[in-house]
Simulated scan of single mutants.
Amino acid sequence: MDGSPARLLEMLSDRFAAFEAIATSTVKLARFVPEDELAMEPGVAEAVLEFGEDLREAAASAAEWARSDAPVAT
């Protein structure tokens, strides 16, 4: 297994998809059901979705940086 930071970020992003699925369903259901019946609070769901976007952006940036043969920080 490649333990590079870019690969680790990619793996975290993939694993985070389950939380995003719950958050997405929460946001959609929030329009139709009482808040106490949701899987998570709507504000938390929105934060989860925003974090997912940031995580994917960081993974893509790290992968691009690694492909550019950038010098390794010491």
Rank of each mutant, 00 (worst) to 15 (best):
E53R: 12
P5I: 12
R56F: 08
F16Q: 04
P71F: 10
S13L: 08
E53Q: 10
A58P: 04
E35S: 03
L49K: 10
F32L: 12
V27H: 02
V44L: 06
E41D: 09
D69W: 10
A60C: 07
A45K: 03
R31C: 00
S68F: 00
V27C: 00
A66H: 00
M40A: 08
A58I: 00
A66Q: 01
A17T: 13
A62W: 01
F16V: 08
E37C: 09
F32T: 10
L38E: 11
G43K: 03
E57K: 12
P42C: 02
A66E: 06
F19Y: 05
A63S: 10
A47I: 03
P42L: 03
D36A: 15
F51I: 08
A47D: 10
L9K: 10
R15Y: 05
V27E: 02
D69S: 15
M40Y: 04
D54R: 12
E50H: 14
A6I: 13
E37G: 10
R15G: 13
V27K: 03
A63M: 13
E64W: 02
W65L: 14
A6D: 02
A58T: 02
L29W: 04
R67L: 11
V44H: 04
V33A: 10
G52H: 11
I22S: 12
P71W: 09
A45I: 01
A39N: 04
E41L: 08
E20N: 09
F32S: 02
L55M: 06
